[in-house]
């Protein structure tokens, strides 16, 4: 009997955990997009006032923005420093490919991130600032949608996990 109870508790916990991790994806997407917005703000400030080189700017962003988004900029900076002849866009794409799983973004959001690679290193200061502002606008729209998704799905997945676990236990008993 005690084994059955233990099994039932484990199933409920596992299902709840699954539900929580699914809801965390929606929460994390919002966080990533917020971090990307902050990164672009740092980028704009650095090139507007500091005129630092792009690898240095990415290093600076990575130092201020933690987590996978910071890691994405670190990795891109590393690709640039390899001096293998990659363009900044190629370095960004390679780095996105390396960090895709950690980013936990939806397909549309990843496509937006790929577009972000077209900004780096192209044009003069004004062009860069304009493009970064435009990208921030697109990210804000994506963030708005991601927040809606999060509000809709976050609690739902947690409850679904818990209820799913209880249903499985009832069926098994």
């Amino acid at each position: 009997m005690s084994a059955k109870i233990l099994g039932a508790v484990l199933i409920i916990f596992a299902a709840y955990y699954f539900g929580c991790s699914m809801s965390a994806v929606y929460k994390n997407r919002v966080r990533r997009l917020e971090d990307l917005l902050v990164s672009l703000e740092i980028f704009k400030a650095e090139i507007n006032y500091g005129l630092s080189l792009l690898p240095e700017v990415f290093h600076s962003i990575a130092g201020k923005v933690r987590g996978p988004v910071g890691g994405l900029f670190t990795r891109t900076g590393e690709y640039m420093k390899m001096k293998e002849g990659f363009s900044a866009g190629e370095c960004w794409r390679n780095s996105l490919r390396d960090r895709q799983v950690e980013m936990e973004l939806a397909k549309g959001q990843m496509e937006l991130l790929e577009k972000m690679g077209l900004i780096w290193g192209r044009g003069d200061k004004n062009d860069q600032l304009k493009q970064a502002t435009l990208m921030q606008e697109l990210l804000r729209q994506a963030l708005h949608e991601a927040r809606g998704e999060r509000d809709k799905n976050e609690k739902m997945w947690r409850y679904l996990g818990l209820l799913g676990g209880i249903t499985v236990v009832i069926l098994l008993l």
Partner: peptide
């Protein structure tokens, strides 16, 4: 285009005076 990007260290914006 690629050479220009490489010589400017991906940072054409920082080389406006040189350009």
């Amino acid at each position: 285009e690629k050479t220009l990007e490489l010589i400017s260290n991906h940072s054409l914006y920082a080389f406006e005076e040189e350009l």
